[in-house]
C-alpha cells in the first residue's frame, strides 16, 4: 500500500537507484567489520556489532539478482526500524537524497520474471532521467531463502 505522499530514502547499488520508505529506515551507518555466517543463505552478508546490538546484514545484490560485486570500499549500512523486522540492515554502495514522492507518480511494475525479487519491489517511478525502484523493507527478511547451499567439497 502506498500513501498518497511519502518520503523515500534513496540509495545506489550497482549503479541503480533504489529507495525505501523513510518510515522504515532507522539510520545509515558507516561500515563496520562483519562476520560471515557459515551455512547461512547466500543473501546473508554477515553479522555486525553496532553499539552492542548484533545486527544481521543482508546482501541486497543477491536478493535482486544483481551482478554480485563486492561492496564498494565506501559502502554503508542502512539499518531498519523494528517495524521492518528485528535488528537488521543491508549493504549499499552509496546513499542518495531523501525524496518526497506522490503515489500518482508510481508506474506499477510488470510482473517480474523472478518471483523472489518481485515480492521485494513495491513499484517503479521515474526520477529525472533515472528510474527509481521502490523496495519493501518489511519483505526483506521473509525473502531469505532457507534452503541452505552447501559450499565447498566435503569429503
Amino acid at each position: 500500500m502506498t500513501a498518497t505522499s511519502q518520503h523515500v530514502c534513496t540509495f545506489r547499488l550497482d549503479g541503480h537507484l533504489y529507495g525505501f520508505d523513510l518510515a522504515m529506515v532507522r539510520e545509515v551507518h558507516p561500515p563496520a567489520p562483519w562476520v560471515v555466517v557459515p551455512k547461512a543463505p547466500p543473501e546473508v552478508h554477515g553479522l555486525v556489532n553496532l553499539r552492542g546490538r548484533i545486527h544481521l546484514i543482508l546482501d541486497l545484490r543477491q536478493m535482486l539478482n544483481l551482478k554480485s560485486l563486492a561492496p564498494s570500499a565506501d559502502h554503508l549500512f542502512i539499518l531498519f526500524r523494528e517495524v521492518a523486522g528485528e535488528s537488521f540492515g543491508i549493504v549499499v554502495d552509496a546513499i542518495g537524497e531523501i525524496l518526497s514522492i506522490d503515489g500518482k507518480d508510481l508506474e506499477w511494475k510488470e510482473t517480474e520474471r523472478n518471483p523472489k525479487s518481485s515480492k521485494l519491489i513495491d513499484g517503479v517511478l521515474t526520477h529525472g532521467e533515472e528510474i527509481l525502484t521502490l523496495l519493501r523493507a518489511n519483505a526483506l527478511l521473509g525473502a531469505l531463502s532457507h534452503n541452505r547451499v552447501k559450499q565447498g567439497a566435503g569429503s
Binding site: 567489520p33 562476520v35 557459515p38 547461512a40 546473508v44 555486525v48 548484533i54 544481521l56 528485528e86 541452505r148
Partner: peptide, 27 residues
C-alpha cells in the same frame, strides 16, 4: 551469549552469537 538472529534460527549448528572483546561478532 546472545540468541542468534531470528532469521538465522534454522542454522542449528549455532547456539547463539556474542560480541568478543575486540568488538567483533563471533558465533
Amino acid at each position: 551469549v546472545k540468541p542468534l538472529h531470528a532469521a538465522l534460527e534454522s542454522l542449528d549448528i549455532f547456539a547463539g552469537s556474542t560480541v568478543m572483546g575486540d568488538g567483533q561478532v563471533s558465533l
